[in-house]
């Protein structure tokens, strides 16, 4: 899960699109299209992560103290279950990444997922802003390309 920085690379210099020839413009457009695709993919996987965290958070809502001692069926495999009893309804063990798991009580568990959802949402917003900017640049490139092509045929 990489942090996305919103600032532009400082070494980029401004280029007047009209000074480029058609070939350069189409290369630029291809590059922009690729980047836009990448953004779209990132958005999709972030959306998936968001849903996962949301589901886990909702699951925690269902664990209440009156569930203690209730019998449940524990899945051993996808198709085999063994009966069990809920002994501890106050703590859950959460995957925090890189193969580490931490035990948390219900409240801090909920807090964890809330934080995660916020983090993912933030990243998504950043990507959306970046994507919008990129597609604006792409539109400008396409416009200049069309202009040049018209001039060539004229």
């Amino acid at each position: 899960m990489a942090q996305i920085s919103a600032r532009e690379a400082p070494h980029l210099q401004q280029i007047d699109l009209t000074t480029l020839n058609l070939q350069q413009l189409s290369t630029l457009k291809q590059q922009l299209d690729q980047e836009l695709n990448l953004f779209q993919e990132s958005l999709t996987s972030l959306k998936m992560a968001q849903t996962k965290f949301q589901n886990s958070g909702e699951c925690l809502e269902k664990i209440t103290s009156d569930l203690e001692g209730r019998s449940i069926l524990v899945p051993l495999t996808g198709s085999m279950y063994v009966p069990g009893k809920l002994v501890d309804v106050n703590n859950v063990i959460i995957d925090i990444g890189t193969r580490y798991y931490a035990q948390k009580d219900i409240e801090s568990g909920k807090d964890y997922f809330k934080r995660k959802i916020n983090f993912v949402t933030e990243q998504m917003e950043k990507i959306q802003v970046l994507g919008l900017e990129k597609s604006k640049i792409r539109d400008a490139v396409v416009e200049v390309m069309e202009l040049k092509m018209q001039n060539q045929t004229a």
């Binding site: 063990i93 925090i96 990444g97 580490y100 798991y101 931490a102 035990q103 964890y112």
Partner: peptide, 13 residues
Amino acid sequence: ELNILREDSAVYK
């Protein structure tokens, strides 16, 4: 995440 945890929290690998 580990830094947020209480000192006595159980951690598993």
